[in-house]
Simulated assay, not measured.
Amino acid sequence: MDHHLIVRRDAAQATLDAYMERPFAWGTGDCGQMALDHLAQFTKLATPIAAVRAKLGAYNTAIGARRAIGRLGFASLAEQLDALGLEQIAPASAWVGDIVAGPSVGAMDALTVYLGNGVVVGFVEESPHGTHFRLLNPVAAWRVPA
């Protein structure tokens, strides 16, 4: 098996293990934090992610999350992913370990990590904690360089 595929698989599994059943909490257990934790596992992204975390600051509400993203100079999590140099791809082209955005309630992006066969790990309103689920209506995706 290709080394890059193993790295992607292992990172996706680690993210699933860390966030499955993890209670949702703004600033510590939300989709943005999950995406940052996932991306930090990749050597090419570890340093930029550390810089993002340093500037992000603490937040514990949806309004606080929007303000934190604004402190980074972005209007959305999608803009932040673009600024990290992640290539936007068609959601149907996602590989294990890529970031996929789904529809969300309100103005915040809903980021997930792709596990394969249309299944992602992330947070949904119907569950008080992280879970894996089939993302039926992905709206955007980014290739994670492994």
Score class of each variant (00 low, 15 high):
L5N: 15
L5C: 07
L5G: 15
L5I: 10
L5R: 15
L5D: 13
L5K: 09
L5A: 11
I6S: 11
I6V: 14
I6L: 15
I6M: 11
I6C: 10
I6Q: 14
V7M: 12
V7Q: 11
V7R: 13
V7E: 12
R8E: 10
R8P: 09
R9W: 13
R9M: 14
R9H: 08
R9N: 09
R9D: 13
D10H: 14
D10K: 08
D10R: 15
A11P: 09
A11G: 09
A11R: 09
A11L: 03
A11Y: 08
A12G: 05
A12D: 05
A12K: 09
Q13G: 03
Q13N: 06
Q13L: 15
A14S: 07
A14D: 08
A14E: 13
A14Q: 14
A14R: 13
A14C: 06
A14M: 06
T15F: 11
T15Y: 10
T15D: 05
T15C: 10
T15K: 14
T15E: 08
T15S: 10
L16R: 14
L16T: 07
L16W: 11
D17L: 10
D17I: 04
A18S: 10
A18H: 12
A18L: 14
Y19Q: 08
Y19D: 10
Y19F: 15
Y19L: 09
Y19P: 07
M20G: 09
M20N: 13
M20A: 14
M20I: 08
M20F: 15
M20R: 15
E21S: 12
E21G: 09
R22T: 15
R22Y: 11
R22A: 13
R22K: 12
R22V: 08
P23G: 10
F24V: 05
F24Y: 09
F24P: 04
F24E: 06
F24N: 01
A25W: 11
A25M: 07
W26Q: 03
W26R: 05
W26M: 08
W26Y: 11
G27F: 04
G27K: 03
G27N: 04
T28D: 08
T28W: 13
G29F: 02
G29A: 12
D30G: 07
D30C: 05
D30R: 04
D30E: 00
D30Q: 07
C31F: 06
C31G: 04
C31S: 04
G32D: 12
G32N: 02
G32W: 03
Q33Y: 01
Q33A: 03
Q33M: 05
M34S: 00
M34T: 01
M34R: 04
A35V: 04
A35W: 00
A35G: 01
L36F: 01
L36Y: 05
L36Q: 01
L36C: 03
D37T: 03
D37R: 14
H38K: 08
H38S: 01
H38C: 03
H38T: 03
L39E: 00
L39C: 00
L39T: 00
L39D: 00
L39M: 03
A40H: 03
A40N: 06
A40M: 10
Q41T: 05
Q41D: 01
F42S: 06
F42D: 05
T43A: 15
T43C: 10
T43N: 15
T43R: 15
T43I: 09
K44S: 14
L45C: 04
L45W: 01
L45I: 12
A46V: 08
A46M: 08
A46Q: 12
